[in-house]
């Protein structure tokens, strides 16, 4: 479970995120959408413990991120939009390193199916510099998933992936949600979110414009008497336009 209560992040006088509260239960996938500069990445980085929130609290799988960061982070995987890798470690060495950090005793057994699922099983001895952008993304994902996290944060997870990679990634996200993980995905690819997300949170200027299940948000922004429910893209435009009024 991922919970944030009255989260706020200020940079000097600029408010990046204001009074954000959310709850993502096991099995739920929350799509975080918003324009550029809406505060999506800041929110995710606060939830991951990378930057401290100015106000508010975060709980991951019941552990308060500020009070018990180690227990909270053991349950967490965070994937940034740019894969963060060590240039001098091979694919296999990356996994060995992360396994030791997270104390994954059986990482060798987990590694092979994970790499096969991500289609980089034949790259185990290659360095990041020898991998394409998409392969690097897959390696970062493998590193994040090797310890079976129960709270997963994706920031633009499909950047650089090919169509097959995108399809597999979507299936992987849904499977992990079915297995009980709480997932937040930040993306501008609204059709993707529509496919995989059970919940949506729309951010605008650091404030929550809409938050709820996909159906609830659709209902909130449906026009009077419209027969065909609007898609997420239309909802996004309506929500952001409303906030700008």
């Amino acid at each position: 479970m991922i919970e944030a209560q009255s989260l706020a992040k200020l940079y000097d006088k600029f408010t990046a995120v204001e009074d954000l509260s959310l709850t993502v239960r096991p099995g739920e996938v929350l799509g975080l959408v918003g324009c550029n500069g809406a505060g999506k990445t800041t929110t995710l980085r606060c939830l991951a413990g990378i930057i401290p929130p100015t106000r508010g609290s975060v709980r991951l799988c019941g552990h308060d991120l500020a009070a018990d960061p180690i227990a909270a982070k053991r349950e967490l995987a965070f994937f940034s939009d740019e894969p963060r890798l060590f240039d001098y470690l091979t694919v296999e060495q990356h996994l060995a390193f992360v396994a030791r950090i997270y104390q994954v005793a059986d990482y060798r057994e987990r590694m092979t199916p994970l790499l096969e699922e991500l289609e980089i099983a034949d790259k185990t001895h290659q360095l990041p510099g020898e991998l394409s952008r998409g392969m690097k993304q897959k390696l970062a994902i493998a590193c994040g998933l090797i310890h079976n996290p129960r709270a997963i944060l994706f920031d633009e997870p499909l950047t650089g992936l090919d169509p097959i990679g995108i399809r597999r990634m979507k299936a992987s996200i849904l499977r992990r949600a079915q297995e009980g993980a709480a997932i937040i995905i930040s993306s501008h690819l609204l059709p993707l979110l529509e496919e995989v997300c059970s919940h949506v949170l729309i951010l605008g200027g650091g404030k929550v414009l809409a938050n709820g299940t996909l159906e609830e948000v659709v209902h909130q922004f449906s026009g009077e008497g419209s027969e065909v429910p609007p898609d997420l893209e239309e909802i996004f435009f309506r929500a952001t336009a409303e906030s700008q009024k």
């Binding site: 963060r84 060590f86 950090i101 997270y102």
Partner: peptide, 10 residues
């Protein structure tokens, strides 16, 4: 890569 280190449970 401080952001990466920050996520580790250490």
């Amino acid at each position: 890569v401080a952001d990466l280190l920050k996520v580790y449970p250490l």
